[in-house]
Design a protein around this nucleic acid. Structure first.
Lengths: 152, 152
DNA sequence: ATAAACTCTGTACTCAGGTACGGAGTCAAG
DNA sequence: CTTGACTCCGTACCTGAGTACAGAGTTTAT
């Protein structure tokens, strides 16, 4: 694993998959959707992958953990070479969407929590504030526009 | 819309869908998966739905906004009649999962934000901290175990 | 009475991110 | 040289929450 072997294609797909901790099928899947390159098929025998590819996959996984979709990651990898600003703008949009998500989840959490408390306090076994809230026509309309309910 | 018409099946599927603001196909879908009951097929002609069904669908939509899946909602509707405690336990579990989600999103958000700031501060156009972070082998391993990365 | 609008039924498709499988080829160890 | 493990390739399947569509029947308005 020294610097000289770094760029040599030496890994079989199985070794590659193991090295980065994903499934062989997932490696193939990434190839299928063009997210990682497919080393030219040797005239006979197996494809060999470089550690570079392993790093690319780790990149993908890290970006996924940061909340990017594979589509977005593909774009990131394309522009990633050049313009920092493009990447930053994308990251900012992503951050803003995450903020929205957090807000929604929090208001949801608060609503649930309040209901749970009421439920715990109430002694009437045959009347559940949680279910009743859900059953209400109106009132409690301030869950906070959580989770886009469709649209088109 | 007075109390006497409440339980009479009077709505066509289209009126029902419109009344609750969802697609006709979605109503059918809910029927298919057994989430709402299908009024017995008349010997000829169209099915009629009661306002009760409309309320059930509103229940579903509200529960969805609270973060329940259709599967969970189906369960809620089954146990909802009787035992408050069951509902509460489910709601508590749900709340805890939401807490996890919020935590994950927040650590993700912080990481992104930090990178964005570094990116904005840095003047080097040819070196993007965001991309570099993603490209790093190790370090920055504390995003907070976000998003289960698979595993049989 | 006829056309437009609606409903019914069943099936297939969508999106994302994979997973599974079958059959054939290939490689490495004993 | 054979056996077992691995790879290749294509295709099909999975989950969740719907959406789309075709063709036939029905209802409603004119």
């Amino acid at each position: 694993m020294n610097i000289t072997t770094k760029e040599q294609p030496v890994l079989t797909i199985g070794q590659l998959a193991k090295a980065v901790g994903i499934n062989v099928e997932t490696v193939r899947y990434y190839q299928r959707i063009g997210l990682i390159e497919k080393p030219a098929t040797p005239l006979r025998g197996y494809r060999k992958y470089s550690y570079r590819t392993a790093e690319n996959i780790r990149f993908i996984k890290r970006a996924q953990r940061l909340g990017f979709s594979l589509q977005e990651i593909a774009e990131l990898m394309q522009i990633g070479d050049g313009h920092c600003q493009d990447v930053r703008v994308r990251a900012e949009k992503k951050r803003d969407r995450i903020d929205d998500q957090i807000r929604d989840l929090q208001s949801l959490r608060d609503t649930l929590d309040r209901l749970i408390c009421e439920c715990r306090t109430g002694s009437d076994e045959h009347h559940c504030p949680i279910v009743e809230t859900l059953l209400e026509q109106d009132g409690v309309s301030n869950y906070g526009e959580v989770a886009s309910t469709g649209g088109t």
